[in-house]
Design a protein around this nucleic acid. Structure first.
Lengths: 212, 212
DNA sequence: CAATAATCCAAACGAGCGTTTTAATTGTCG
DNA sequence: CGACAATTAAAACGCTCGTTTGGATTATTG
């Protein structure tokens, strides 16, 4: 087994991650990916099998450390007997997850754009892949959040959960555009952590309407 | 000038609207559009010039009646000296806009999916087109909403506005998927008006955090 | 070091794409 | 009716796409 195999694989993943986040899946050709990565065109089909499987691999590399560290953090806090508030859970989701990506040198914003694409783009295989692979982590988080919101009927809770996800994914995936507008119109500097700090109380208030 | 010209044009627009909302722009070929519409392939280039211009035409047919009736409603209420609350403005945005589409026999949900695509997909020309064409209506609404939220500094207001847009567009554009989950897991029937009724107080609470 | 597997590479394949061309058809109007 | 413009139609163009192929190159291993 060649030493450069791993290298080629990760070079492809690095390039694909950036290009997918920028333009979407269909708009990014394998030729653009491989030439950006500096590898041969056939390498994608050789190492991943197909473009679809490459897309899934990109998401796997992102989502696994993200959900792992989120679930670990949730487990730790539950085991410590900590009382989990709505704000605390959102902090976990935003901060812990983000940090796990930042530690690996990944751009959290790119991650959010990819997550947005996964929901929006016409890629049935991707949605199925994500649900089957990360559904448990999702339900873990959603379950704890529901517990922190007693008095909300399940249907209302579910709608609110989607409102919250929408606000988060939509805003963070177009962070660049929003930041540019704010800088131009108000001369205000913005950062991703600052956006998350604004998001926590706003999303929490939305979730807590009519809850006890 | 042939009578059937208008017919061909609107047949193309009808087909394109549905297909774009389902799969996105790149994933929808002109051949699929024209065969669905039952017209010749060359008709798109003949009547619209190019695929890009067809995309813009689809949005124009959607957005013009939407923003027109929204702005008319805002103007009417301002002229009547009505005091516009956050909830009232969201009601205008959701209800008035939606109704204007429903009256024309258009699917409001499809409209939301298209709006989501406009933000997410990699189509620079489309974003430019929408901003230049509908920027005034957008600023009109945003201005009145800002007035209804005294005590919020402009930067915070802008972030909240994006949180609200995100929650709205994201949720409504995947309404089908959410509805299916709710029906399966809770046996609950959902409708678009009901989703909007849930959205108004939730989004209002989010906007109003720390406002007077 | 020879054999064997893994990887890389250049080239080509077939299919689908948006667009253009050219001719036939249809409608309009003096 | 006949001239002229508008529309429809079929076919082809040039290009890009994802994927496959067959051989060269590199690494691994007995």
């Amino acid at each position: 087994m060649g030493m450069s195999q791993t290298d080629t694989v990760s070079r492809i993943l690095d390039a694909a991650e950036v290009l997918f986040a920028e333009r979407g899946f269909t708009e990014t050709s394998l030729r653009t990916i491989t030439s950006t990565a500096g590898v041969n065109l056939a390498a994608v089909n050789y190492h991943f099998g197909s473009k679809k499987e490459l897309i899934q691999a990109v998401f796997e590399r992102f989502l696994t450390p993200f959900t792992d560290s989120l679930v670990a953090d949730l487990d730790r806090r539950v085991a410590a007997g900590e009382r989990l508030t709505v704000e605390g859970l959102l902090e976990s989701l935003y901060r812990t997850g983000m940090n796990s990506l930042a530690e690996e040198g990944r751009d959290p914003q790119r991650f959010m754009r990819l997550l947005g694409l996964a929901y929006t783009q016409y890629q049935g295989h991707l949605r199925r892949f994500i649900v089957s692979r990360y559904g448990n982590s999702y339900r873990r988080f959603a379950g704890l959040l529901a517990q922190a919101l007693p008095g909300l009927d399940p249907v209302t809770f579910y709608w609110r959960l989607y409102f919250m996800l929408g606000a988060t994914i939509f805003t963070l995936s177009s962070f660049d555009a929003i930041e540019a507008i704010l800088r131009e119109d108000f001369g205000a500097q913005s950062s991703l952590p600052e956006a998350l700090e604004r998001l926590v109380p706003a999303a929490a208030a939305m979730l807590k309407v009519n809850a006890e």
